[in-house]
Design a protein around this nucleic acid. Structure first.
Lengths: 260, 260
DNA sequence: CAGTGGTCTAGACCACCGC
DNA sequence: CGGTGGTCTAGACCACTGG
């Protein structure tokens, strides 16, 4: 089962009756189908959480055998785009929940039943993007971006300090609304307010000593070791829609990686 | 496609002509087949690197359609047990190469063309297992284990300090041979000398300051921040066959995690 | 109960590999 | 060229879900 996805998917709508609409360039039919379905999903024909038509219907619509259509769906499933539920249907996966940063840390304190993490926006600004940020977000050099500084707390104790960069035409609604009223989880709010689904992310982990100012915000001594997470988050279409630099107490860092 | 693997696989040999040999308890045929093939692999019928019989032959042997047999193979492929090569065959995957610890660090120095990492065994001993080690390795409390202390170097600079615990009946050959003659990569040597294939590992990443002695071995000042990797390595049958604690310069640590 | 995805079959033909 | 895995078909039947 090759993992590549072909380019130029077929037309979303059913084909004209003659002149075969799927001139398979040199690849598999199911790969082509998957690319077509992916396009219809990223274009919003089936929003996150919605159910696709039944397998039989999709197979008939594309004039293809059931097994072939199922192979296409399987591709999209292990790309994380779809989710199948036996007896219910095939659904477009929702976005990440935004609480995922805490998975890198162990902040439990002796038998605490964990309270929900709280979020406080400390600063918000519209600034020209740095060269690196523009590059990562696919913006022209110096394009305006929205930056946030955010402190996350557990049981009233500050535990994570985050600096977030968002591309600006897309996140304009957040440049105006009152941060005091924002949700504790950003990604569901991105979805609701800006229509942006954060679907996948790459987290680069590292360690560095905390600056005096950053350490103070986290209630730690200056020069305390900090765990650093540099995140690039992507939407359904694979475009980078967020840069996030997260710092926390290195001594609370714990993460399990699977090898092979 | 459920991911579970059924218990009590069918008999390895072809079935007696009557009295159906595969009394599917309540699960899928391909899951049952996969369990049977897995057993034959872990029992050494097809050693790592060897090719399985062709799909058609296996399907006929088990009295099953091609598609069903292919589903079973697909299960074992994404469990990492098998590897398929178009036009060549289906092969039992070899073990890990043992260089995988370095993937957590960036030790490049300005334009160096990287030399192969070197390994030096600093200490070897047979000792009673700690309670935690015995538990993890599935040994009785206080059973004898082989411990190694090992320093890995890049271009002559020490970069990683490792403390390794190995269960003893299994690794007895290593308790006697001369460590000076050992390979730089341990896992291929485990395979060759002890017949142990390291197939999968779980690495728990963390952070702690280095002790004065450990820091000295790494050429770092006492109390320098250290990245810690606590590894449990497993063989083809899923048994834990190695515990390894690795320390390195936290400031050289870099790892990228994929989020969903 | 009707509708969904999951399993399984028995074929055909294609694409890749190595000799 | 012969052997391998990869794709595709057109069906049948099973298992799960929800009203």
């Amino acid at each position: 089962m090759p993992e590549v996805m072909e380019i130029s998917p077929p037309a979303p709508a059913p084909a004209p009756p003659d002149a075969a609409p799927q001139p398979l360039p040199g690849q598999s039919r199911y790969g082509w189908l998957a690319a077509g379905l992916r396009a219809r999903i990223t274009q919003g024909e089936w929003p996150p959480g919605a159910a696709l038509p039944a397998e039989a219907a999709l197979a008939k619509e594309h004039g293809v055998a059931l097994g072939t259509l199922r192979q296409a769906l399987a591709l999209l499933v292990d790309q994380g785009l779809l989710e199948r539920r036996h007896g219910r249907g095939t659904f477009v996966r929702g976005g990440l929940d935004g609480a995922s940063m805490l998975r890198f840390f162990r902040f439990r304190h002796a038998g605490d039943l964990q309270a929900a993490p709280r979020s406080a926006i400390r600063a918000r600004a519209v600034v020209p993007a740095s060269a690196a940020a523009a590059e990562a977000l696919g913006l022209p050099a110096g394009a305006p971006v929205l930056t946030l500084e955010r402190l996350r707390s557990l049981d009233g104790r500050p535990v994570l300090l985050e600096r977030i960069t968002l591309p600006l035409p897309l996140f304009a609604p957040l440049a105006e609304s009152d941060p005091a009223g924002w949700d504790d989880l950003l990604y569901p709010m991105f979805q609701r307010v800006c229509g942006v689904t954060v679907h996948r992310a790459e987290d680069q982990l590292g360690f560095a000593l905390l600056s005096a100012a950053d350490a103070a915000l986290l209630g730690l001594p200056a020069g305390h070791p900090g765990a650093q997470v540099q995140r690039r988050a992507f939407d359904l279409a694979g475009r980078c829609v967020e840069l996030r630099h997260t710092q926390g107490d290195a001594l609370a860092f714990a993460y399990t990686a699977q090898v092979r």
